[in-house]
C-alpha cells in the first residue's frame, strides 16, 4: 500500500514538473508593508517605471546594513542619473525602533524609498535569512540577482549588475 502511495505521489510530482517551464526568474511576492506615513502598501505595487530596482533589507541596529546604505547614499545621485535605478530600503525594525526610522533616514539624508516590514512578512516571503540582504529587480519586476551580507566595496559589484541589466536590454 505504502509503495503504491509513493508511486502515486512520485508520478504526480513528475507530471507537474514536466509542466514547469524553464524560467528561474522570480517575481516580487505579495506582502503588506507600511510606508513612512503609516499607510499600507502591497509589495507587488513596488515599481520603477520599467527601470531596474534595488530592494535592500536593513535595520537601524544592523551596522553592516547601515554601512552599505550610507556608502550607496554617497553614490546614489550618480547611479540614478546614469541608469535610472531606484533603491527601496526595507527596514525590519519592529515597534522598538520603527519610530526612529524616518528621522534616521532623513537625518542621514538618504534619498531612497523606505518602507517598514515590522513583522517581517516581506522578509519571510523573499526567504531572507538575515540582514543585510539585497535584491536586484529588472524592469519586468523579476529578481535577477541577490546578495546576502555586506563587505566594503560590495556596492560596486551591485552597480555592475545594474549596468549589466541595462546592457542586456
Amino acid at each position: 500500500m505504502k509503495k503504491i502511495q509513493l508511486l502515486l505521489i512520485l508520478s504526480i510530482t513528475l507530471i507537474s514538473f514536466a509542466f514547469i517551464p524553464q524560467s528561474d526568474n522570480r517575481t516580487i511576492p505579495s506582502a503588506n508593508i507600511k510606508n513612512l506615513d503609516g499607510g499600507d502598501v502591497n509589495t507587488t505595487e513596488l515599481q520603477n517605471n520599467g527601470k531596474p530596482m534595488i530592494i535592500s533589507f536593513w535595520a537601524t541596529w544592523c551596522s553592516p546594513c547601515k554601512r552599505e546604505l550610507n556608502n550607496i547614499a554617497e553614490l546614489y545621485d550618480d547611479w540614478v542619473e546614469e541608469t535610472g535605478v531606484k533603491l527601496i530600503a526595507i527596514s525590519i525594525d519592529d515597534a522598538r525602533n520603527a519610530g526612529k526610522v524616518a528621522p534616521y533616514v532623513n537625518g542621514k539624508g538618504w534619498e531612497f524609498e523606505v518602507y517598514l516590514d515590522a513583522n517581517q512578512d516581506f522578509k519571510r516571503a523573499l526567504n531572507v535569512n538575515n540582514v543585510p540582504h539585497t535584491f536586484l529587480v529588472n524592469g519586468k519586476g523579476e529578481i535577477v540577482w541577490q546578495h546576502n551580507s555586506y563587505s566594503e566595496g560590495d556596492e560596486y559589484e551591485l552597480y555592475k549588475q545594474v549596468k549589466k541589466l541595462l546592457e542586456a536590454k
Binding site: 515597534a95 519610530g99 528621522p103 532623513n106 537625518g107 539624508g109
Partner: peptide
C-alpha cells in the same frame, strides 16, 4: 502606553518617546 513623536527634515531627525 507607548507614545512617540518625531520631526525630521533633510539632515536633521529628532524622535522623542
Amino acid at each position: 502606553f507607548y507614545l512617540q513623536s518625531s520631526y525630521s527634515t533633510k539632515g536633521f531627525g529628532l524622535t522623542l518617546s
